[in-house]
Design a binder for these strands. Structure first.
Length: 567
RNA sequence: GCGCCUGUAGCUCAGCUGGAUAGAGCAACGGCCUUCUAAGCCGUGGGCCGCGUGUUCGAAUCACGCCAGGCGCGCCA
């Protein structure tokens, strides 16, 4: 509808006001904040005031009739400084309910004229331990951004980059060796950057005997590598399980080590060399990143001949582009932000579009228990794992909480609050909306009331839906596709959360306001039928939205009991 | 010192690419359950949108400068 109004405005501007098509202003067509300002409003007249040397309201008066021509339009008003407010006929809105039922689980999905091939790389935690609490936010944000992109018509691939080649995995295996020796009473110390957690000892003890034959001696390189592979594989398995149980899917785990084995890096270095942006200094090899907007040159090959993490990661990003992905979305912790200009510089230096790389920087999450920060001692190796958190508060609540704030705001995650089954907890509010809708339908069937389906389209009139609250709900449902597209394009999944909260709030309000005077299942049969169509459509929209967040849509929720201190 | 993020109600945060009278939840206070789940609803109070200048028909939103908090500035990952 928005697009049709836009087209009508463009036509009116060129034909009635003689504005050349090339000089059309970039006017808006928006849903206004106030309902009295119509279903849609445009600022076109104000933008043209200067050029046409006319008062905005006068121009608006000329444009109005053009919009009026559309069959869905009820009336058009000139308002305020020169806004055009467009009101649609109620019937035009009501018809949308059938569209919702027809589309079902696909309602809100968009098709793109030109879908982009998008890679979302996220989590990418070192395979040296289980996912900890801090990984949760990036995991959910990446997961939902991927869902949103796919639902809004793009082709999406999700990947986890496995840093299985560097110093960290070496620290892991050395830590394992330390624990093995300790078990046997052999001398030795944990390496300075070693891993303290008890899980490392468990991991070491789980190693098959043939991998620990070097004991009681010191391991040679081959033994170390073998044990390292074992440790990494086991940790990666644990990470996969954590993600799986948290509702986060990956299409592929890309191994840094395997990528190293390919010739990508060598080619890349040659290419940089050929372009004259690669130099040797002090025994190391540098990429002259400062020529491409970064602060300073960056080392690719260290003086000991090993690669920096950056070198390998750059090879990986190039690999993504070669595999045909046009948009590379990475979800990184905000502490890695300094890395962005470096990667962009390198892509640019290699003749790739630097803007292909989009980085979602997620800010820190502080963990609270009952309002007090949870203090963690890194030295003692105590970490709060992601699994502990979602097992404590529940997967739905954990996911919802991580999505509750924009990625670039730091946030607090209060365990007690997330667990609380009360009004403070927004996830239950939304889920309860869905359960309530289901319960109305169940009650209707119990009472033997016919629940209309799509087959009633055409036969059943929706005209009895005349309450302002009912029309408001329909209008909000109409916005889903645009909300999803917007959230996807801007990588802001929290927008869907807010949408969902508004939608369910409108429903709860409608339900309660009329619960006594005009209950959904009361009154004339035609009205009940029409309202059941509204309920069916609402349930679909709520379910689809929850689905996009990876949060379950329960059909019923256990009642807490009104007189409940218990529980 | 330089760079990135943030600063909006008592608290936690929305506010889309500049639009009309700045919103939500929680907290506080007052109401609503014989009838579709009260995990709900209705109402009241609460604001220098960090500060200042600029851009323009119009700024919480854009630009610049300050102030405050967080993070980063390795031949670490």
């Amino acid at each position: 509808m928005k697009e049709r109004l836009r087209a009508a405005l463009r036509a009116a501007l060129t034909q009635r006001l003689g504005v050349p098509p090339a000089e059309l202003p970039d006017f808006s067509v928006e849903v206004p904040n106030l309902e009295s300002h119509g279903d849609f409003a445009t600022n076109a007249a104000m933008l043209l005031a200067k050029r046409l040397r006319k008062a905005p309201r006068e121009i608006a008066g000329l444009l109005g009739p053009a919009l009026q021509a559309a069959p869905e339009v009820d009336r058009v008003e000139v308002a305020g400084p020169g806004f055009l407010n467009v009101f649609l006929k109620a019937d035009a809105w009501r018809a949308l309910l059938w569209d919702v039922l027809a589309a079902g689980a696909d309602y809100g999905r968009s098709a793109r004229e030109r879908p982009a091939r998008v890679m979302v790389e996220f989590v990418s935690a070192n395979p040296t331990g289980p996912l900890h609490f801090g990984h949760g936010r990036g995991a959910v944000v990446g997961d939902v951004v991927a869902r949103l992109l796919a639902f809004s018509g793009h082709q999406v691939q999700r990947e986890f980059y496995v840093n299985d080649a560097g110093k960290q995995v070496r620290n892991l295996v050395l830590s394992m060796v330390h624990w093995l020796r300790k078990d046997r009473g052999l001398p030795g110390e944990l390496p300075a950057d070693g891993y303290h957690g008890a899980y490392v000892a468990d991991l070491a003890r789980a190693a098959p005997a043939e991998l620990t034959r070097f004991l009681p001696g010191e391991p040679d390189e081959a033994s170390l590598v073998a044990l390292e592979r074992f440790g990494v594989a086991a940790m990666l398995d644990a990470i996969r399980r954590d993600l799986d149980d948290f509702g986060v899917a990956m299409d592929r785990f890309s191994s840094e080590r395997e990528l190293l084995g390919s010739t990508r890096l060598a080619e890349l270095l040659q290419e940089l060399q050929a372009r004259g942006v690669y130099e040797e200094r002090d025994g190391a090899r540098w990429f002259l990143a400062d020529r491409f907007g970064d602060e300073k040159p960056r080392v690719l090959i260290k003086s000991d001949g090993s690669h920096t993490y950056f070198a390998n990661d750059l090879a990986y990003h190039l690999d993504k582009l070669r595999r045909g992905f046009e948009r590379l979305i990475n979800v990184w912790g905000a502490d890695h932000h300094g890395y962005v200009p470096r990667m962009r510089a390198a892509l640019q230096a290699l003749g790739q579009p630097p803007e292909a790389l989009e980085v979602i920087l997620v800010q820190m999450v502080s963990l609270l228990r009952d309002g007090q920060p949870v203090v963690l001692s890194k030295r003692a190796g105590d970490i709060v794992t992601l699994r502990e958190v979602f097992e404590e508060v529940g997967r739905d609540a954990a996911r919802f909480f991580f999505l509750l704030r924009g990625s670039d705001s730091q946030m607090e995650f209060d365990l007690e609050l997330a667990k609380r089954r009360s009004m403070d907890n927004p996830v239950y509010y939304v889920q309860y909306g869905h359960a309530r809708l289901c319960s109305i339908l169940a009650r209707a069937r119990e009472r033997g009331l016919p629940v209309p389906g799509l087959e009633s389209r055409g036969a059943l009139s929706l005209a009895p839906l005349e309450l302002p609250e009912e029309l408001r709900l329909v209008k909000k449902m109409a916005a889903l596709a645009e909300v999803v597209r917007r959230a996807a394009d801007s990588c802001m999944p929290h927008q869907v959360v807010y949408y969902l909260q508004e939608l369910t709030a409108d429903f709860h309000s409608y339900y309660t306001t009329y619960g006594k005077t005009s209950p959904i299942l009361g009154g004339p049969a035609e009205r009940v039928a029409a309202r059941l169509v509204l309920v069916l459509a609402l349930r679909q929209v709520v379910a689809n939205s929850l689905g996009l967040l990876g949060v379950s849509a329960p059909e019923r929720m256990e009642s807490l009991g009104a007189e409940g201190e218990e529980g």
